[in-house]
Design a protein around this nucleic acid. Structure first.
Length: 581
DNA sequence: CTGGATGAG
DNA sequence: CATTCTCATCCAG
């Protein structure tokens, strides 16, 4: 007990080298998506703005000194030719994020999202299988190596991390070829180090960290703020203790730190400071809440509140239909204008809602449900704001929570259909009302002219997550296709029953869909809901046999893992020919 | 369970 | 500092 250090060093918490973690971080993600939607922007300085804030920009713009989280006005002063696109609506970014995660899940089921543009993948298993089947030992590292490797650890981590770097390289290759997205990757034996080393070479590069480089990596961090888990608040507390550097954090007395931060956080930060992290990669499932919010300068009338909420609710209903689950509660969030400035204070209220509002029961009128929800929202609003007095809001948000898993068996099939139908309806509507959006040049710029009629690929989503619904064969097949063949384009075109697989269709104007749906909601909403009601007629259209394949989903994971490692092995074998000795 | 604080991108 | 638009986790009430 007197010996604080024993715990850290002895029990090896978070510092064993037995795992291989890859962290992937898409380069200037929002800007990349915008450039995929409109490739003409590639060579121009591009910024993505939300309200008055430049949330990210491409690397052309960065040459002018434009940076993340700048005021738009400042950015324009630095770079008068800066092209700005609006990024308040996250729909396309979310869509691409889902595609990236799905692609990565082909390498391991252990994929954890961090925000929309980052993923952790635990590839320990795939590495082990690859090492097992690859008897010829010569290994080289793909990409950069961080720090020195003069002293090699004897636990076998050197070989594991080498293979990890090759897997990371393959992941980035597929992300680029299949989705058109460039990423950075970091490879290390825990999450913390994988993330930290990831950002040492940017953009579109990867870096592998071996144990000998850990100390350098940690001590080269500028300050404690660089550690994940230390935000501005904890940083202030540490500052008050005279701690700003990583080295200071490494050396501070643990009890002193516990006094200021509590035992749990203090111990965690102590370990993080020396590069130890025992957090597991927790597979990301469906979100626990789905919400939208809108910030603005001033709202002070109840009618404005109601209008805002109605628009938010309409957009939210689309996200909800895509998710496929039924919410049990709704929450309203506001931010009041606060001149005294401290920091942004939000208040929220939530209430339960009857699930009957969402059941796909024939005869349920959507406008009815919609109105009831809007009424609930306004009630919640009145719980926060006393409208008999003047008020000044700068933000309104609406979110659904407490999702119910749906019924087993038929129920889930039905919901599956409802989800697809709602999306299709929106598509159909787009075809009718908006004519000729833009030519789509989305993914790998090769295949510009995809056929436009097919469905969006939301079905993929339910494929690899918690629900055992759709056939995992797809995933496996996709993996093989993606990995063995150079041209994904060809194989996609060739297979007609492939309409559910991962084609990139970002530039078909999904945001336009959404916006237009909102604006014209009066008419459209009825149309959408009517479509949802007529379930039987849609079963034909959708080709149920495709997704209801009674697939014996035994050891799918094992299967694709095996295939993955075979494929990787093959690839490495053929690529390494000349280098082998 | 609710709502606020904090932190992530 | 947050600023944007989300989402998750932790914790006190």
């Amino acid at each position: 007990m007197e010996d604080d250090f024993d715990q850290t060093l002895d029990s090896n918490y978070g510092s064993s080298h037995d795992k291989v973690i890859v962290h992937l971080d898409a380069d200037c993600f929002y800007a990349q998506v915008e450039m995929l939607k409109n490739p003409e922007l590639r060579t121009l300085p591009l910024g993505v703005q939300q309200k008055n804030l430049l949330v990210t920009c491409n690397y052309v713009a960065r040459q002018f000194g434009v940076k993340k989280c700048m005021l738009v006005s400042d950015a324009k002063r630095l770079c008068p030719s800066l092209i700005l696109v609006k990024g308040e609506d996250l729909y396309d970014y979310r869509q691409m994020s889902t595609k990236m995660t799905l692609l990565l899940q082909k390498f391991s089921p252990l994929v954890e999202k961090l925000g929309l543009d980052e993923n952790f993948v635990d590839v320990t298993q795939l590495v082990a299988e690859t090492l097992k089947s690859d008897f010829a030992g010569s290994r080289n590292v793909e990409g950069h190596i961080y720090g020195d490797i003069t002293s090699r650890c004897d636990c076998g981590c050197y070989e594991r991390l080498c293979v990890g770097s090759q897997i990371a390289s393959e992941m980035r290759k597929q992300l680029k070829e299949e989705l058109g997205v460039t990423c950075c990757a970091g490879v290390a034996y825990n999450k913390l180090l994988a993330k930290l080393v990831c950002s040492t070479h940017k953009p579109n590069q990867q870096t592998t960290l071996f144990p000998a480089g850990v100390s350098d990596l940690m001590l080269n961090l500028n300050n404690v703020r660089s550690l994940p888990g230390i935000g501005h608040r904890t940083s202030e507390i540490l500052q008050s203790l005279g701690i700003s550097s990583i080295e200071q954090l490494q050396n501070i007395n643990l009890e002193l730190l516990e006094h200021a931060l509590g035992r749990t956080l203090a111990e965690r930060l102590k370990k993080l400071s020396v590069g130890a992290d025992d957090m597991v990669v927790k597979p990301t499932g469906k979100p626990q809440s789905i919400g939208l919010e809108d910030g603005f300068r001033k709202i002070s009338l109840e009618s404005e509140v109601k209008d805002k909420c109605e628009v938010l609710l309409q957009r939210l209903m689309i996200l909800l239909a895509e998710d496929g689950r039924i919410p049990g509660a709704i929450r309203v969030t506001v931010r009041k204008y606060d001149n005294s400035s401290r920091y942004s204070h939000r208040e929220s209220r939530q209430c339960n809602i009857p699930s009957s509002l969402f059941l796909p029961k024939v005869g349920t009128l959507s406008s009815n449900a919609h109105n009831k929800l809007l009424t609930s929202i306004m009630k919640l609003f009145h719980k926060i704001i006393d409208i008999s007095k003047p008020f000044h809001l700068t933000l309104l948000g609406v979110a659904f929570t407490k999702f119910q898993e749906r019924n087993t068996g038929k129920g889930s099939i039905t919901s599956f259909l409802v989800k697809d139908i709602s999306v299709q309806s929106v598509m159909n509507f787009q075809n009718i009302s908006l004519h000729g959006v833009e030519a789509m040049e989305c993914s790998s710029s090769k295949n510009a002219g995809k056929q436009s009629g097919s469905t969006l690929n939301y079905a993929d989503k339910s494929g690899s997550e918690s629900e055992p619904e759709p056939s995992p064969k797809k995933t496996r097949a996709d993996f093989w296709r993606g990995s063995r063949k150079r041209s994904l384009t060809e194989s996609d075109k060739d297979s007609p029953n492939k309409h559910r697989s991962s084609e990139l269709r970002l530039s078909t104007g999904e945001p336009i869909n959404e916006v237009d749906f909102s604006k014209l909601s009066d008419g459209i909403q009825e149309e959408l809901m009517e479509s949802c009601m007529s379930l039987p007629s849609l079963t034909d259209k959708l080709g149920i046999s495709d997704n209801s394949t009674p697939n014996t989903s035994m050891s799918i994971e094992d299967n694709f893992q095996t295939n993955a490692s075979q494929k990787l092995w093959k690839r490495l074998g053929s690529n390494q020919g000349p280098q082998d000795q």
